[in-house]
Write a protein that binds this DNA or RNA. Structure first.
Lengths: 231, 231
DNA sequence: TCAATAATTAAACAATGTTTAATTCTTAAC
DNA sequence: GTTAAGAATTAAACATTGTTTAATTATTGA
């Protein structure tokens, strides 16, 4: 398969453009991490990237396109993390996923905070795939609930199509509060998992319910030590 | 008590100013309801209100102050609705509250949608009272849970301080999805109450839990008819 | 080597939040 | 009633910032 089409053979020119594009995006992420997307000024970005404003427009586009590019990349990362769900118990699977997300956010917390705020505001999370990222991401908790019903962990009194979105809502709510600085990443982990486990517990059979209660208690006690390591 | 201080006796001047202030805010709400707060242009507002830009700055302030004034008013309305909680069962109390909120939003849905979006973005909801509106509003579900524990409806395995914020999160999450147009006010009612009832059910004793399950089922079936009337 | 073309740039444009200095109007003392 | 003081209002300008245009420069392929 030819990477190079008629007009994009790997020339000095295209290499420079690729490099500059990367520089622009890198500096954009830095600036956003500093003061949020609204504080990103095209002129500042041009200066930081060592080029001029129209070049940014040529290589990427205006503010909307810059954000869209960054959000698209973020969504792809989230998708990868979501696809890494192991084949453990339901609650371990959720815990692992929240854990992985938190670890990922920790690699550049300021940036991810700002990116989620900007993404939520722009509505880009909803538009970034044909059917909306929400629909795509909510499918997984729904499926997890369905499996849990099959495994007799959940009673099935609440349809998975009802429980799944609520679980997703708990995650998103916690993420938002973290992004807005109401608590740190440990708080995110605790808040998200507590919400998810509560939703599950509502429809859980007795033994599974007690297991979830224990998990929630552990989240609380662990969080007070400030040292959260979810297995 | 003298309403009129030294400098604000009820004169032609002060009456005009009060009237103009009200006009500005009314037109601001109209404009916001139309295209959101970001689309509110001071010049448009001045034209619609039949005065000039600096007068707006004199009587109210810039965009920040305009939004702050509107949000402050909104928060007061919410507080009034929240204070109207009756002395019914726990779940009826929550249902009543969500119902009242939805009815209130319905009086000017476009405006309230835009106002919540702008309020969430600005962080004004957190700043509008000394301790933050979140802390103030979350106190009520915590208290409700505490009472439910006393009434033996909840087992108390989940501390009210943990359950309360999750309940509040469900409400806020539903409100946000409604504000962003992902569903209508009936969807808001259903989503919010389903979440709240799920949280309660997680810690409910058997009979209360079944009662909540029934409520959730009813929410689902009612919503499919598109005709929601919560008692 | 050179003409065609693509990328880059300096400069201007447009929209919009905000402020300034002059003007008009209201008030209250005489 | 008149009038000076002061407050509200206004026209105009200012400042920032996203975006575009037309000219310049660099790269490419023949």
């Amino acid at each position: 398969m030819a990477i190079e089409t008629l007009s994009s053979s790997v020339t000095t020119r295209s290499k420079n453009m690729t490099k500059r594009r990367a520089t622009i995006l890198r500096e954009a992420r830095n600036l956003i991490a500093g003061d949020g997307f609204d504080a990103l000024k095209i002129r500042d970005l041009a200066a930081r990237a060592g080029l001029t404003v129209p070049t940014i427009y040529n290589l990427i586009g205006g503010k909307d396109e810059i954000l869209a590019t960054i959000i698209k990349e973020l969504v792809e990362q989230l998708q990868i993390i979501q696809d890494e769900v192991g084949s453990a118990t339901v609650e371990e699977s959720f815990a692992k996923q929240i854990h992985n997300l938190a670890n990922h956010f920790a690699t550049d917390e300021a940036f991810y905070r700002a990116a989620f705020i900007a993404g939520d505001r722009s509505g880009l999370f909803e538009q970034s795939s044909e059917e909306g990222i929400f629909a795509r991401f909510v499918r997984q908790p729904i499926e997890a609930c369905r499996q849990a019903v099959e495994q007799k962990l959940l009673r099935g009194n609440i349809p998975p199509e009802v429980l799944g979105p609520q679980i997703y809502g708990c995650y998103r709510s916690a993420r938002q509060d973290w992004a807005n600085g109401y608590f740190d990443l440990d708080g995110f982990r605790r808040q998200a998992l507590t919400g998810i486990f509560l939703c599950l517990a509502a429809d859980a059979n007795p033994t599974f319910r007690e297991r979830l209660m224990e998990q929630i208690s552990m989240l609380e006690s662990v969080s007070r030590r400030g040292d959260v390591t979810i297995p």
